[in-house]
């Protein structure tokens, strides 16, 4: 949903190489479009990359839409530029994990691995 896609593509590729099925939705998606993708693709996780500083606006909207659609079971993880102080706020909204700058692909893989055989949607 951000206008930057370098980071999200690196993560998508890393997860692909670790054996995950990753659906990349592209830049500038609306929250509604992302949620439709998660539902139609029957995704287990939703990864979002936000560098714009809008995470405290976008994430609550996404969580609300997921809930409204009965998609509470979908794990949401967030990457990008998230200030340390905002991490607890995102976790309180139901985000399962925030990956800050400098996170290795391996950390993300190790986090998702226990849920193997999963599809991951990225936006």
């Amino acid at each position: 949903m951000d206008g930057h896609d370098r980071g999200v593509k690196v993560v998508a590729r890393g997860l692909r190489d670790a054996g995950f099925h990753v659906i990349y939705t592209g830049l500038w998606q609306t929250p509604e479009a992302v949620i439709r993708t998660v539902a139609d693709e029957d995704a287990d996780f939703l990864g979002i990359s936000i560098l714009s500083g809008a995470h405290l606006t976008i994430v609550p909207r996404l969580m609300e839409l997921l809930k409204a659609q009965g998609l509470d079971n979908v794990g949401v993880f967030v990457g990008g530029i998230i200030p340390e102080a905002d991490v607890p706020k995102l976790m309180a909204m139901g985000v399962v994990r925030v990956f800050g700058p400098g996170t290795s692909i391996q950390e993300a893989v190790d986090f998702l691995r226990p849920f193997a055989q999963s599809a991951v949607t990225q936006a």
Partner: peptide
């Protein structure tokens, strides 16, 4: 690895409000 990066949706317009379209 069995992994896949599925990027076809990227080039298709999204219709979140239209129940007459389904993309998988």
């Amino acid at each position: 690895t069995g992994g896949a990066l599925l990027g076809d949706r990227l080039r298709m317009p999204n219709y979140p409000d239209d129940d007459g379209v389904y993309v998988r």
